[in-house]
Design a protein around this nucleic acid. Structure first.
Length: 802
DNA sequence: TAAAAGTAGCTC
DNA sequence: AGCTACTTTTAT
C-alpha cells in the first residue's frame, strides 16, 4: 500500500505558513512522490511550488485534502541527509524551512510564478478596455498595471463566470542542450547515396565509412571530425544517414584545463599534519582539526593530499574558501591536481552554470567541490573530509536570512558522515582557537614558512606626527619614500585602504549643510565620476546640487577622502607610477576582480591600490612593498570584534610582501601605534594576541566566553518599533536564567534605513536550553507584530553588532 | 451611498 | 506572500 498523503512545505516564507501542509497523492503520481522532490500544489486560490518533506498513510489535517498537481523532479533534489540538514539549519538559525531549502539549491531551481487571464464567455466583453485586452487571444498575461476600476471590472467578470484567472508555476531549471547526431542503424553509407558532384556529401560518406563513430556527437564536433560544414551534417540527417538527437552540454565558463601536477614533497611539519588528517579520514572520525599555519606555510598542499586520501578511500571532499580567495590562481591549483573531478561554485557563475555544476555533483560526476559559503550545501554523498580555509573569515556567516554559519553547517554534516573537518587559518577566530584550547578541536601547527623565507620587517608609522602644511594627510614621508624606492627598483607595491571612513560627502561651506538621504539617517556619498550623490544603504541617487537647498549659497564643496581621491593624490606624488585601483566600483563587472589581479600580476602596473579584497588570496612574488594607509578605522567601531578584525587584516597583508626571492617590507600607518592589535600584528604574534584578547573578552563577557543572540526589531513607525522592542525585551527576561545578560533595546547606530526604524536587543548567555524554543514561540504567538508591520530578525552569534 | 482604504484571517 | 471577506473612513 503506497502512502496516501504527502507533507509539503510550500513556497511562502512567513511565520504562519512555516509548517508542512497535507496533500493527497493522486494514484497516477504515487510512484513519483517521495521526500525531497519538488511539486506543484494548489494553495488557496494560487498554485505554488513546494517540497515534499514526508509521507504518511493518514492526514493530520482534519478536512478535505487538495491533491498534488504535478511532480517536478524524477529524483529528489534533496536527499534524506540534505532534507534533514535543511530542517536543522532552519531551527538553529530561526529561519523558515522553505528558505533553507531554497538556499541549498541553485537559483535556477527556484520557481517563477505567472498569472494569466482567460476569457471564457461566448460573447466578447462589452467594455472597450476589455475588448482591447482580448483582441488577439482568449488567454493573455495578467496585466502588470491595473487601475482600481480595472481590478474591480476583472473581479466582476470572474464572478459572472466570464473570466478565469490561472496560476502558472515555471520551472527554470533546464539543462543546456545542443543539437547532435548519431549513426543511423543499418543504413548503407555507399557513395551512391549522394549525387556524385556533391563533394562535401561524398567526403562525409567516405569519412563515415572509414572512420565511423559510436555514441553521439554534437553537430559542430561531427562536422569538424569529417572536415565538412555543419550544413552538410544537417543534410546527412535529412538523407537519413545520421539521426538527429540532442545532448545535454555543460556550461563551462572558466574552461581552464591546467596541466596535471603531482603531489609535492611535504616538509616535516606538513607531513605530520597530513598524517593526522589522513588517519582521521581513514578512521571515519568526526574530529575537528584547527590547522594554524602562517601565510606561506603550505596549508594548501596539505589540504590537497588529504583530499586525495579521501578520494582513494572512495569518498568525496568538500573545500570551502572565502569568495574573495576563489581566484583563478587558487582554482587553478585544485584543478591541476584533480582535473575534471572538481566542481567549482562561486558567485561569478551564471545561474545556468551553477545549475550545471550542481547537477554534476549530484550525479556523482564531480567528487570534489570547491566553493564559497553556500557550497557547504553541495549535494555530495559520502563525504570523506571537509576543509574550511581561512576559517576566521566573516563571509562564512550569511548576513541575511537564513543566517547560517558555514562552519557550523560543516560540523553538522561531518557528524552525519563521520568525517573530519579541517579548519585552516593563520589567524584563527577566537572561538575556534578557544575550542582547540579546551580540547574540543585538535590543534595542529605549521609554524614555518616554506623555504624558510623570512617574514618581512614591519614598520609602524605614527600618523599623529604626520601634521604640517606640506605633507599629504594620507601619505607619511616614510611611505612616500618607500614607494619611490620600490618604483625606482622596478618592483611592485600593494597599498591597502580600509574602506570605512573613506567616503566623500557634499557640504555647504557657507552654512554647514550636508547632503543626506531622504530615506535613511545617513549622509550621501559623492560619486565624482558619475556626478551623483548615492546612498550606500538604500541605493537612493540624486544629482549633486549646485546650490545649497538651505541658504542658497553656491559654495558646495566635497570633503572626506574617497578611494578615487587617494588615487589622485598618489598619482600627484608619484607622477610616473602606473596605478591600478581595485574597489567595489572597479570590480563590479563580471570578472573585474580577476582581470585587475591578472593585469597586476603581468606587471602592467607598479602600484595596486585597493580595499580589503586585495588582502586575501593574492600571491605575487614580485610584490616587495605592502603599505596600509589607515590601519585603525576598524578600531573605531563599537564592536567587540574590532581588535580581532584589525589584527587579522594586518597579519594577512603583512604576509603578502616578499613572497618571492626578493626581500619585502611592510609599512603600517596608524593613529594608534601602541594598540596591541597593531603591535602584535606587526610581530605576527598570533598566540600573543589570542591570550591578550581572551582576557578582554572574559572581562567584557563576550564570545567565546558567552554566546550572543541579536534581535533586530524594525517597523515603519519609530514609536511602534520602540514599543515592540521593549515588549519583546520584557517577554524575553522571564525565559532566561540569572546568568544571562540582556542589553537594550537600543536604536541601531543608523536608526532609519529605507524608511524603516531599527532597534536592537543583544542577549549574552552561557547556557539557555529553553531560549531557542522561547524565542520561536514569542514570535509566532505575537499578533501585535503582524498587525504593526513589525519585523524581527534573530541572529545567533552575529558577526556585526552595530 | 458608493467607493476607497484599512485590516483580520486563511491557505492542506 | 497573496488573496478574500469584512470594517471603517471619506468624498460626492
Amino acid at each position: 500500500m503506497m502512502a496516501q498523503t504527502a507533507q509539503v512545505i510550500v513556497d511562502v516564507a512567513t511565520r504562519q505558513t512555516d509548517q508542512p501542509y497535507d496533500y493527497a497523492i493522486p494514484e497516477t503520481l504515487a510512484d513519483q512522490v517521495e521526500p525531497g522532490v519538488r511539486v506543484i500544489v494548489p494553495f488557496g486560490r494560487r498554485k505554488l511550488q513546494g517540497f515534499v518533506v514526508g509521507l504518511s498513510d493518514t492526514a493530520a489535517f482534519d478536512g478535505k485534502l487538495k491533491a498534488i498537481e504535478q511532480v517536478l523532479d524524477l529524483t529528489p533534489v534533496l536527499d534524506p541527509e540534505l532534507l534533514a540538514l535543511s530542517k536543522w539549519v532552519a531551527t538553529t538559525t530561526f529561519s523558515f524551512w522553505i528558505a533553507t531549502m531554497q538556499t541549498m539549491l541553485p537559483a535556477a531551481m527556484r520557481a517563477k510564478y505567472d498569472r494569466t487571464l482567460t476569457w471564457t464567455a461566448d460573447e466578447k466583453p462589452a467594455d472597450g478596455w476589455g475588448q482591447a485586452l482580448f483582441r488577439h487571444a482568449r488567454t493573455v498575461p495578467y496585466p502588470d498595471t491595473l487601475t482600481a476600476a480595472q481590478t474591480r471590472q476583472l473581479r466582476a467578470w470572474v464572478k459572472a463566470d466570464q473570466l478565469t484567472v490561472d496560476y502558472i508555476v515555471h520551472n527554470r531549471a533546464k539543462a543546456k542542450t545542443q543539437k547532435a547526431v548519431k549513426l543511423a542503424p543499418g543504413k548503407a553509407l555507399t557513395s551512391a547515396a549522394a549525387p556524385k558532384n556533391a563533394k562535401a556529401q561524398q567526403k562525409l560518406l567516405t569519412g563515415l565509412q572509414t572512420k565511423p563513430f559510436t555514441g553521439v556527437l554534437t553537430q559542430p564536433v561531427a562536422a569538424a571530425r569529417y572536415g565538412v560544414s555543419v550544413a552538410t551534417v544537417r543534410l546527412a540527417e535529412k538523407a537519413g544517414w545520421l539521426q538527429s538527437t540532442t545532448v545535454n552540454i555543460r556550461r563551462n565558463p572558466l574552461a581552464i584545463r591546467p596541466e596535471r601536477d603531482q603531489p609535492k614533497r611535504l616538509t616535516a611539519d606538513q607531513q605530520q599534519a597530513a598524517d593526522q588528517f589522513v588517519a582521521a579520514v581513514a578512521a571515519k572520525t568526526p574530529q575537528t582539526f584547527l590547522l594554524e599555519g602562517v601565510t606561506g606555510s603550505g596549508k594548501t598542499e596539505v589540504y590537497l593530499q588529504t583530499i586525495q586520501a579521501a578520494l582513494d578511500d572512495g569518498r568525496t571532499a568538500l573545500m570551502l574558501v572565502p569568495e574573495i580567495a576563489l581566484t583563478p590562481q587558487m582554482v587553478h591549483r585544485v584543478l591541476a591536481r584533480f582535473g575534471d573531478a572538481v566542481a567549482v561554485l562561486h558567485s561569478g557563475l551564471s545561474d545556468g552554470e551553477k545549475f550545471d555544476e550542481w547537477r554534476r555533483i549530484q550525479r556523482g560526476e564531480a567528487r570534489i567541490v570547491v566553493g564559497a559559503r553556500s557550497a557547504v550545501f553541495a549535494p555530495l554523498a559520502n563525504i570523506g573530509v571537509i576543509i574550511i580555509d581561512e576559517e576566521h573569515e566573516t563571509s562564512y556567516k550569511q548576513d541575511e536570512a537564513p543566517r547560517y554559519h558555514a562552519r557550523n553547517v560543516a560540523l553538522h554534516r561531518a557528524k552525519t558522515f563521520h568525517c573530519p573537518v579541517i579548519l585552516g587559518s593563520a589567524t584563527p577566530s577566537l572561538e575556534s582557537r578557544a575550542r582547540a584550547e579546551k580540547g574540543v578541536y585538535t590543534l595542529v601547527r605549521l609554524p614555518e614558512r616554506i623555504n624558510d623565507r623570512p617574514l618581512p620587517p614591519v614598520h609602524i608609522i605614527d600618523m599623529r606626527k604626520n601634521s604640517g602644511a606640506r605633507v599629504q594627510p594620507d601619505f607619511s614621508p616614510e611611505l612616500v619614500a618607500a614607494l619611490e624606492n620600490t618604483l625606482a627598483k622596478h618592483e611592485q607595491s600593494v597599498l591597502l585602504l580600509n574602506r570605512r571612513g573613506y567616503s566623500a560627502q557634499a557640504m555647504c561651506r557657507n552654512c554647514g549643510w550636508i547632503a543626506r538621504c531622504p530615506n535613511c539617517d545617513i549622509s550621501l556619498t559623492v560619486h565624482r565620476a558619475a556626478r551623483k550623490l548615492v546612498c550606500h544603504y538604500c541605493g537612493h541617487e540624486e544629482p549633486i546640487p549646485t546650490r545649497c537647498p538651505v541658504c542658497n549659497s553656491d559654495k558646495i564643496r566635497f570633503f572626506g577622502t574617497g578611494t578615487e581621491k587617494v588615487e589622485d593624490t598618489l598619482q600627484k606624488i608619484l607622477p610616473t607610477a602606473r596605478i591600478l585601483r581595485m574597489d567595489a566600483d572597479s570590480t563590479r563587472k563580471k570578472g573585474g576582480h580577476a582581470r585587475i589581479l591578472n593585469a597586476f600580476g603581468k606587471g602592467q602596473a607598479d602600484i595596486l591600490l585597493g580595499t580589503q579584497m586585495i588582502a586575501k588570496g593574492l600571491d605575487f612574488p614580485t610584490v616587495t612593498l605592502v603599505g596600509v594607509i589607515n590601519a585603525d578605522t576598524a578600531l573605531g567601531m563599537p564592536d567587540f570584534r574590532a581588535s580581532e578584525r584589525t589584527f587579522q587584516l594586518l597579519t594577512q597583508v603583512a604576509g603578502r610582501a616578499g613572497r618571492g626571492s626578493k626581500p619585502g617590507s611592510v609599512i603600517i600607518q596608524t593613529y594608534n601605534p601602541d594598540h596591541y592589535a597593531i603591535q602584535l600584528a606587526a610581530r605576527q604574534d598570533y598566540e600573543g594576541f589570542f591570550r591578550r584578547e581572551m582576557r578582554l573578552r572574559h572581562q567584557g563577557k563576550y564570545p567565546p566566553y558567552y554566546y550572543t543572540v541579536l534581535l533586530t526589531i524594525s517597523a515603519p513607525s519609530e514609536t511602534v518599533t520602540a514599543q515592540e522592542s521593549y515588549r519583546i525585551a520584557g517577554d524575553l527576561k522571564p525565559l532566561l536564567s540569572q546568568t544571562a545578560i540582556v542589553l537594550g533595546p537600543t536604536p541601531r547606530s543608523i536608526t532609519r534605513i529605507n524608511n524603516r526604524y531599527y532597534y536592537q536587543i543583544l542577549v549574552k548567555f552561557k547556557k539557555e536550553p529553553a531560549l531557542g524554543r522561547g524565542l520561536h514561540n514569542l514570535l509566532t504567538n505575537s499578533q501585535a507584530l503582524l498587525k504593526n508591520k513589525v519585523q524581527v530578525a534573530i541572529d545567533f552569534e552575529p558577526q556585526q553588532i552595530m
